[in-house]
Amino acid sequence: MVVPVSPQTVVARAPRQDGQATRQQILETAGQLFAELGYANTTSKQICESSRANNASVNYHFENKDGLYRAVLHEAHDRLVRIETMISLSESPASPEDKLRAIITVLIGGLGNQREGWALKVLTRELLSPSSVLPEVLEEQAFPKAKIVREILGQIMQLPPDDPATLRSAVSVFAPCLFLLIAHEPLARNVLPGLELDPPALIEHMMNYARAGLQAVSGAAKAL
């Protein structure tokens, strides 16, 4: 049975679809501008002009510039690794090591991906110069992901997730991944010329390094 669609329904749906496209275009443009210029040096007018939206679009879709910046930070976190992905991974029957490999694969797999490029720059700027929206974004995005990471590392090391050795290990395992995502091009070009940044090889290296390091730290912590 075919349900007839009235012209009024078609007309009603079009603005919502166009509105979503406009919202996404504004979000993408804002992410790029915030990444290059910083929050303080980027105006709503610049964002609207660059995204070819009218000057009221930021307020219409995001309430204000702060609301837009908050949405950009959430999008940046999602592009790095989605919280839904982390939750699904934590609840899966996979081994802790396989879960760790999956997270590293998601992070390293983004090397050279321009879609993640502005996201990482925005997050880096925000951490170096925090804004008023940072606590909310940390509460909703960073803290839940960090909790899952600690639990996975704790399972591998057979230590509590909040053990100091587990917390330090989280930094040791994931800081190199984030550093490579942020600085992989200048690193390979200027600092370590000839460095092979092929994602599969890097993932395997990161896993081998993490596995050996976690075993060593775990052994030392249990010997105390």
Rank of each mutant, 00 (worst) to 15 (best):
V2E: 11
V3Y: 07
V10R: 03
P15K: 12
P15H: 10
Q20W: 13
R23L: 12
Q24E: 15
Q25K: 14
Q25C: 09
A35P: 07
L37V: 01
L37C: 07
L37I: 02
G38M: 10
T43D: 01
K45L: 12
E49K: 10
E49P: 00
E49V: 12
S51H: 06
A53E: 01
N55Q: 09
F62Y: 11
L68C: 03
R70I: 00
A71C: 05
A71I: 03
E75H: 13
T85E: 11
S88D: 14
P93S: 04
P96R: 07
A102E: 14
T105I: 03
L107T: 06
I108N: 09
G110F: 03
L111F: 04
G112A: 06
N113T: 08
Q114S: 12
Q114Y: 06
Q114H: 07
G117E: 15
W118N: 12
R125K: 13
S132Q: 13
E136N: 12
E139S: 14
R150E: 10
L153S: 06
Q155Y: 02
L159T: 00
P164D: 01
A170M: 14
S172D: 11
L180D: 00
L180F: 05
I182T: 05
R189M: 05
N190H: 12
V191S: 08
E196P: 00
E196K: 11
M207A: 04
A216K: 14
S218I: 04
A221F: 08
